[in-house]
Amino acid sequence: MATHPGGLTKAPPAVRTRRLVRRFGERTVLKDIDLDLAQGEFTALLGRSGSGKSTLLRAVARLDHGVEGTGELVVPERVSLSFQDSRLLPWLRVLDNVVLGLRGPGTRERGLTALEEVGLAGRDRSWPHELSGGEQQRAALARALVHDPELLLADEPFGALDALTRIKMHGLLRELYERHRPAVLLVTHDVDEAVELADRVLVLEDGLISLDMPIDLPTPRSRRDPRFQEYRDALLTALGVTTPSAAPHDSPKEKPHVPNV
């Protein structure tokens, strides 16, 4: 069932930012971000390109050396990040890629388990270029999961995949999330993806969080659900996209990515 976003639990948040500011030279990309992500909460971060969503993600991942910034930032010990490209090292076999950041005994076994979980059992000896785009992204997901992260950051992980592969990957990500329950921050520009996967959607606009919306729908979510459409329209409006579909309900005009089967 859906979690209670921001929940009234006593546990401290997984991520906490206060007055987070990031600047590139003259341009202020993040202005005063105050954000709490609860433990085990699946949050999607939406925004148009240039809105600063990747900057926020990189700040949380502590990857933005050389960017001027101020404010308070608390992140957990074990953070995993998956990128838009799978970023597998071409000279390491799939299993070695998955366990690249692991040390100590049982490394191999943990890697194999992670591969099995993402549906790549038996592909551990393959080279990355022998995998399809979707399989590479699965291996990258295994590499993120093998660290048993408290926080999973994902920067448009499905952006480069074709529509059919993306549908499968949505299912897989949600399934892995339900099993491991890390806090997730998923950066995306796809409104449907955000509503389908996340329990809470943030809209970032001009360096500020302009909308913070819990998605209260039971989890195997159908895009045909009228309430799904309502969330979607509200988010599109928040993103400044005024479409005819906001008024009449069944206009077939824009069906962005997914062929309705």
Binding site: S80, L81, F83, D85, L89, L92, L100, R143
Partner: peptide, 23 residues
């Protein structure tokens, strides 16, 4: 991007040299 990956995975300098730089 591979250097960034090594940073995200918090590879030690030696491991970074062995797994990323040399190959």
């Amino acid at each position: 991007r591979h250097v960034e990956l090594a940073e995200v995975l918090r590879l030690s300098r030696w491991r970074f040299v062995r797994k990323v730089v040399i190959p």
